[in-house]
C-alpha cells in the first residue's frame, strides 16, 4: 500500500516567453513507512513537485494533468480549504533554508503553538507539547527555547526547530526539501540521524529531496532520479546506485565528489545545461548532454522496466 502515489503529473508555468513545462508525466510512489529520495540538479523540478503536492504552486503555475493520490484522495482535485486541512496534520514539510523558514518577529513558542490550532488543546498543553518535541530533537533547555526568537539560534538549531515543528504534527508523510543543504557536514549527519530516528518513532513515510547523492544513498529505500522535469530513472537505492541504467544517473554518480579516490585535478562535471523547458526537445530530454547519443535519441525514449528498476532511455536494455 502506498502513502503517496503520483501518476503522470504534468505542471506548467505561464511565463512571458510562453508556457514553461516544469514537470512532464512524473510517476512514482512513496510506500508506507518508506523513505523515497528524489535526486537531480537544480532546476530539475524538485521544488515544483513539492509545491504541487502541497497545493502551493505559484499563481502562474497550473497542473496540466495527472493525479496525486494521497490517502485515497486525488490532491489535484481538492479545493484550497481541503488542501489546507491536509497540509500540516497529514503532510508536513521541512524546508531547505533554516535561516528563513521561521518567522523572525514571533517567538519560537508562539510559532509552535500556532500550528497546533486544530488540536483543541489548551494554550498550556500546546506549549508543553512544543517543549516536549524540542526535547526530542535534542534542543538544550527546551522551555527556555520557546521564549526565544529565531535569530537567537544557530542554523543547525533552527533546522532542529523546523524538524520539531514538522514532526509534532505526527504526519503520515514528511516531505524534506533539501533539509541539510545549508548545513555543514557534521550537522548534516546529525540532522539525518535525527530525521531517521523520528521517522521511525512516528512511523511516517518520507519524501526526501536532495541533490546530494551520498545522503540519498545513506538514507533512502528507493530513489527517483529527475532530469528537466521528467523521471529518468527509478528503483531501489541498491539498484540505482550499484547498477545505474540511465546515462544521466551514471554521470551524476561519477560527479559525486565523495566517490573520487585520491586527489583529482578537476572535479568531473556534466557538460552542457538543462534544456529550455519552454521548448522541450521532442526526443530524450538528456540527449543534448549525453555522450552515448545516437540517432534514435531524437524519438521519445520508452520506459524500460526490469525487476522494478525503471530507466527512460533507448539504450536501457543494454544495461
Amino acid at each position: 500500500m502506498s502513502e503517496l502515489e503520483i501518476l503522470d503529473l504534468s505542471v506548467s508555468f505561464a511565463t512571458g516567453g510562453g508556457d514553461l513545462q516544469a514537470l512532464n508525466k512524473v510517476t512514482f510512489k512513496v510506500p508506507e513507512h518508506r523513505i523515497v529520495g528524489i535526486v537531480g540538479e537544480s532546476g530539475c523540478g524538485k521544488s515544483t513537485l513539492i509545491d504541487a503536492i502541497l497545493g502551493l504552486l505559484a499563481d502562474n503555475g497550473r497542473i496540466d494533468g495527472g493525479e496525486i493520490l494521497f490517502e485515497g484522495r486525488d490532491l489535484t482535485k481538492l479545493g484550497a480549504k481541503e488542501l489546507r486541512e491536509i497540509r500540516g496534520p497529514r503532510i508536513s514539510t521541512v524546508f531547505q533554508d533554516p535561516m528563513g523558514a521561521l518567522n523572525p518577529v514571533f517567538r519560537v513558542g508562539r510559532q509552535m503553538t500556532n500550528i497546533q490550532y486544530r488540536s483543541g488543546l489548551s494554550k498550556r498543553e500546546k506549549a508543553r507539547r512544543a517543549a516536549e518535541m524540542l526535547r526530542r530533537v535534542r534542543m538544550p533547555d527546551p522551555e527556555a527555547a520557546l521564549s526565544r526568537y529565531p535569530h537567537e539560534f544557530s542554523g543547525g538549531m533552527k533546522q532542529r526547530i523546523a524538524i520539531a515543528m514538522a514532526m509534532m504534527m505526527e504526519p503520515a508523510l514528511l516531505i524534506a526539501d533539501e533539509p541539510t543543504t545549508a548545513l555543514d557536514a557534521t550537522l548534516e549527519a546529525a540532522t539525518i540521524d535525527l530525521l531517521l530516528e523520528l521517522q521511525n518513532q512516528i512511523g511516517c513515510s518520507m519524501l526526501y529531496v536532495s541533490h546530494h547523492m551520498g545522503v540519498i544513498a545513506e538514507l533512502c529505500d528507493e530513489v527517483v532520479v529527475m532530469y528537466a522535469g521528467e523521471v529518468v530513472e527509478r528503483g531501489t537505492t541498491r539498484q540505482v546506485f550499484l547498477k545505474p541504467r540511465h546515462p544521466y544517473t551514471q554521470r551524476l554518480i561519477e560527479c559525486d565528489p565523495a566517490r573520487l579516490a585520491g586527489r583529482a585535478e578537476k572535479l568531473p562535471t556534466i557538460p552542457g545545461d538543462i534544456p529550455d523547458l519552454r521548448a522541450r526537445p521532442s526526443g530524450c530530454v538528456f540527449a543534448a548532454r549525453c555522450s552515448l547519443r545516437e540517432e534514435v535519441c531524437g524519438e521519445p525514449p520508452p520506459e524500460n522496466v526490469r525487476e522494478g528498476h525503471m530507466a527512460r532511455c533507448h539504450r536501457a536494455a543494454e544495461n
Binding site: 497540509r87 500540516g88 496534520p89 524546508f95 528563513g100 523558514a101 490550532y117 523546523a162 504534527m169
Partner: peptide, 14 residues
C-alpha cells in the same frame, strides 16, 4: 514571498 510564509502555508495556517 519570504520562505517563512511558505512554511506557515505548509502547516496549513489560515
Amino acid at each position: 514571498e519570504a520562505s517563512h510564509i511558505r512554511t506557515a502555508r505548509a502547516f496549513g495556517l489560515p
